[in-house]
Nucleic acid binder design. Structure first.
Length: 336
DNA sequence: GAGGGTCAAGTCCGT
DNA sequence: ACGGACTTGACCCTC
């Protein structure tokens, strides 16, 4: 049982609804602050600021879900920003977020967000940031990373998710020097809800698809097809045997893959009807780093066709600078 | 209002 | 050694 309709082939986008002429963006915007600023204020003032941010951000989340829920059914997928509750995992503000007034408020209001998402059939996820390194060789970093991951799991739980395997996705990279074994160790310390939500994504440099596949029995695997291309030069095809194993890791739930594209201002004169050839590009002096940066839009039609050919077996999370503007355009133009 | 420096945290690449 | 990149530039201060 899942919380979204699995017969829909979705294309989604991440974190932020980009301004366009017909959108009132203000109520859709989340805000944040810094630890430094909070620390410089009186307790009353910093707590007031955090309360204001919590209310603004949860309200923004509700409106974001509403907005995504009004899109065509096959575009109802959205990654929520990690900045929803600023400073949640900083030790100075832990108590603030666990006071009864706050937990009651979050329970009530985040549940409404979750219920709205389920009613509108919006598939939701999180992607904790670069500081969440569950497989770090530094035990302190692992401990902090588990807290960071559990913060996202708390949010999912408040929203009414985490109850069944992959009713909600919280995606991280393997990261760190411990690799897949480090992930297996860290998973033992995660809550049940966190384990239900955890997905692992292959990265461009250190831990690729062959490493994440070691975790097929641990959690669901997110295939990032652009990372895989950066790492190997290969445009992986839907009938590849490794994809069957990725599919297995989802245990019957419809998988999610990630799709991004090298920046258009890096590959300035590149033919938009031909997929970039990484060997050729490296011969011309392009570095992996320069090719991994995300484009504003999905400018390469050949890549788009290839990416869309994966939509039969997986939902496609778009990672591009122009967010919904790019994913909508991709969705509407990349016909297989 | 525009512009620039700054921001909790990890890890890697490229120069 | 240091800047940039990553799921995301936003925010605060000064002028």
């Amino acid at each position: 049982m899942t919380t979204f309709d699995q017969t829909i082939n979705r294309v989604g986008f991440a974190c932020k609804i980009q301004k366009s002429h017909d959108v009132a963006v203000k109520e859709l915007n989340t805000s944040t602050t810094t630890i430094k600023w909070l620390t410089a204020q009186t307790k009353a003032k910093s707590e007031q600021r955090l309360w204001d941010l919590v209310k603004q951000n949860v309200s923004a989340l509700y409106h974001q879900i509403q907005w995504v829920g009004a899109l065509p059914h096959n575009q109802r997928m959205f990654r929520i920003t990690s900045d929803l509750l600023p400073a949640y995992t900083h030790s100075d503000w832990l108590a603030f977020y666990f006071q009864p007034d706050m937990t009651n408020w979050l329970e009530r209001n985040l549940l409404e967000c979750g219920e709205l998402a389920r009613a509108l059939d919006v598939r939701l996820s999180f992607h904790p940031g670069q500081f969440c390194v569950l497989a770090s060789e530094n035990p302190q970093v692992v401990e902090n990373s588990i807290s960071e991951f559990e913060y996202h799991a708390d949010l999912a739980r408040y929203m009414g998710y985490g109850k069944t395997f992959q009713d909600f996705k919280i995606n991280v990279h393997i990261g760190g020097k411990q690799g897949p074994d480090g992930i297996k160790r860290a998973v033992r310390s995660l809550s049940r809800e966190a384990r239900n939500c955890l997905t692992i994504e292959n990265d461009e440099f250190k831990w690729g698809l062959e490493h994440s596949l070691e975790l097929v029995d641990t959690c669901a695997l997110v295939l990032d097809i652009h990372h895989h291309w950066i790492r190997t030069g290969e445009y992986i095809e839907p009938d590849d045997s490794r994809i069957l194993r990725v599919l297995d890791s989802w245990r019957g739930v419809r998988p999610v893959i990630h799709y991004s594209c090298s920046r258009e201002d890096v590959l300035v004169d590149h033919d938009t009807a031909t997929r970039p050839d990484i060997k050729e590009l490296k011969g011309l002096g392009f570095t992996s780093t320069s090719l991994r940066a995300h484009s504003d839009y999905y400018w390469n039609h050949a890549c788009n066709r290839w990416a869309m050919s994966h939509n039969d077996w997986a939902d496609i999370m778009c990672e591009s600078k122009q967010k919904n503007l790019a994913s909508q355009k991709f969705c509407n133009t990349a016909l297989v």
